[in-house]
Write a protein that binds this DNA or RNA. Structure first.
Lengths: 158, 158
DNA sequence: CTTGAATATTTTAAGCTTGAAATAAAATAG
DNA sequence: CTATTTTATTTCAAGCTTAAAATATTCAAG
């Protein structure tokens, strides 16, 4: 090394530690949410995620939009939506002008059901992240956003 | 509201946004790592995680220690270890003094295999988190650590 | 000792997830 | 128009994951 700075192989290790922490935090939170959903509502996280995406999208979402939004495979969404249709919380409606596509929408029942769920969910998350005040939470969120931002090729399928 | 401060229902929402960002970042990174492991090594993330845990533990780990460490269920570890045993990367050895328990250890082959893998893996992670310098990565890791720290009941089974 | 509770692991059934192959329809070229 | 390619979705096989039940062994009283 000819320059004055030290040879920093500590940098990749620090990033690796960050990834491991991120993963651990995610698993912890997910395990708690999964348990509450299961015990208190007999539901699951994947179903909640689909309902949440549909609730954000006023006019419903096509299957492919859903899988993009949730970053899961196409085939995966098919199965989850199948089960939600059985429950009566969502419906598949044909997209006119394109007989290949389906638009998935919340039913009125599904919308009411989800509203209650989402309210509770927000509380659970807030409790799990109770150590962060508003400013800190926003700052961390912004920093994490740069990860998705800098790695733009996030295709799950194909 | 009689006090001077504003009624902060923005706090749970900020925490919820943080959770959604955390989840998105985690999925993005995991998808990238999964693809590299699959294409370049014909392996999977769960297998990598088990090998990594065993590599950190000089004397091997009992099945229950493995599932605690990885925060996954007991039965889950059984299946992954079964497949690693088939590959010849790990072995189950009886724990003497307790005929119920098994200690899982890397084979020499498994250790060599994992060393290559871990090296690459560190590089992949470092690339995905390239937007963070060492100090930032450490600071974020420390903050994320407080999540696990404040939510100590992290039993997966039972 | 023996009985009963606790612990370590595996098995099971159901659901989740992926990547690839199969279908079907739409868009593009010749 | 017709053939080819692309797009939207489903199906499929394999593996992952969970929660609960089943096994097997150890521990703790009595």
């Amino acid at each position: 090394m000819s320059n004055a700075g030290h040879n920093n192989n500590a940098l990749p290790k620090a990033r690796l530690r960050l990834w491991l922490r991120l993963l651990k935090a995610q698993r912890l939170i997910e395990a708690e949410l999964r348990e509450k959903l299961r015990i208190e509502y007999g539901s699951t996280l994947p179903r909640f995620d689909v309902l949440a995406a549909l609730h954000r999208a006023e006019r419903g979402l096509k299957m492919s939009e859903l899988s993009d939004e949730l970053m899961v495979s196409n085939g995966n969404v098919t199965g989850i939506v199948d089960r939600l249709v059985e429950d009566g919380t969502v419906v598949r409606v044909p997209v006119d002008g394109d007989r290949r596509a389906m638009r998935v929408k919340l039913t009125d029942e599904g919308r009411n059901y989800f509203r209650k769920l989402a309210d509770e969910h927000e509380g659970w998350v807030s409790d799990l992240l109770a150590m962060f005040d508003e400013g800190t939470a926003e700052e961390l969120a912004a920093r994490l956003h740069t990860i998705a931002d800098s790695n733009t090729e996030h295709e799950v399928n194909k």
